[in-house]
Design a protein around this nucleic acid. Structure first.
Lengths: 238, 238
DNA sequence: ACGCAAACCAATGTCAGAATGGTTCGGGAC
DNA sequence: GTCCCGAACCATTCTGACATTGGTTTGCGT
């Protein structure tokens, strides 16, 4: 597996050139919307080299995390997607918003706790930016979008693949369900301010590496969301 | 939707006869291993009635929870399965046992808390039985099986469809992963006793409707499992 | 009014063929 | 010997056409 890297001069030149070309092809954004790269055979023909050389280049890019490959499917730029769509569609039809919120109350505090243990300074900065976007005085739909992005970022930073998949499932159910469309449109200024404050409390705890604090802050935030939801549903069905 | 149930006499007789026949067909266990019933068209031909009548019979059985149907697939006896297999297979290959255990530490305490709020007396009885089975002096494999059944039962009693799916996903990853085969085979008598005691603490809290207590007890139990796992892995990779 | 029969719709399973990444082998250049 | 190229083969995935199945509508008859 561990190959020694002493190529003959001309080989170094050709493989390096191909690597640079493919890398530029990826970073230039000259790809279809789905990020699909040409097939290995096409790339080999285009650069006038063999498939084996192309594969070594792609191996490097894959190890670098720039691309991902799947046999029978193709080579793609970016990160491999979490294939939770099918499962979410299965659950979404009979998804009671309160059930979904209860699940969020179970999972997301734990994610915040993990996030507090693993977030880098850069991560915290990105969370701050997202919270700031969500707090801008814009329409409710956009605010909801940035709020979702913030919660997703926390889940990603938590750094546990299994938990991330579970969260992605939950997130898709939440977004895909019909009740989302008829949800509480009118956020009062007070609740908006409360949510912003809670977002900052969560991020403060994460920045301070305070796992328990992040857990509690996230739980309080979701509890507020849940209460708001329950009120706006008229409390008719519980 | 809400149909009045005053059929003409001869109709009552025929549909009732068909209903009884299909019900008996299901309960007699005269079905393929997958629980598949004949198609609606076949049933109609067999009983000499129309599809509409058969559909009304199946509607009743479905509302009763005895069967489930899926367009393009068929009619089946029993409960619809949670289709988490594909997702689990996707994650399992690169499933670090410690990552899985961390996810369990995030999800299962919350499930135990929900379980404490919703378990009936009958539920508690069943949990006691499972815990007792797991504590019998049998080989490690069988004990692990009953332990899994106990945790699954807690997740089911928690009564949240979304959380149950997330747990099912986690459970399949845990069971399907290769590392399961080379796991810590030898449970010492002390750890075995500890696990039994922790199981009983969890169930005690559930019986007492003590959500926070169930949460903590489950967390402590999984923490012990995690510690044991970390030790048996030689602590080489963390 | 109700059941029956037929037809159509939408979703699913099945099957064969093509495309693709993963792998192995032998030949040739240095 | 080492490395690349070309070719072939394998396993997985996608695509399309077709049959099957539950879901639904329509018309006829009792």
């Amino acid at each position: 597996m561990a190959q020694h890297l002493n190529y003959a001069p001309e080989n170094v030149e050709s493989t390096d050139a191909a690597l640079a070309a493919v890398r530029q092809m990826i970073e230039a954004g000259k790809l279809p919307a789905d990020g699909r790269l040409p097939t290995e055979r096409e790339l080999a023909a285009e650069f006038g080299c063999g498939r084996r050389t192309i594969r070594r280049v792609l191996d490097a890019l894959e190890a670098e995390g720039l691309i991902w490959r799947k046999q029978g499917k193709g080579t793609f730029a970016g990160q491999p997607p979490d294939p939770t769509g099918a499962l979410a569609a299965e659950i979404a039809p009979d998804a009671d918003p309160l059930v979904v919120m209860e699940a969020r109350l179970c999972i997301e505090p734990a994610l915040a706790e993990l996030c507090a243990l693993r977030a880098t300074g850069e991560d915290v900065l990105r969370l701050r930016q997202l919270a700031q976007r969500a707090s801008q005085p814009i329409d409710a739909d956009t605010a909801e979008l940035w709020d979702g992005a913030l919660h997703r970022a926390i889940a990603r930073i938590a750094g546990n693949r299994v938990m991330l998949t579970a969260f992605a499932l939950l997130d898709e159910v939440r977004m895909g369900a019909d009740w989302q469309k008829q949800r509480h449109r009118a956020r009062s200024a007070e609740t908006k301010a409360l949510y912003d404050q809670q977002h900052n409390q969560i991020i403060d705890a994460i920045q301070a590496r305070d796992g328990a604090g992040a857990f509690q802050a996230m739980r309080a935030h979701l509890q507020a969301l849940s209460d708001n939801l329950r009120v706006s549903m008229g409390e008719a069905d519980r």
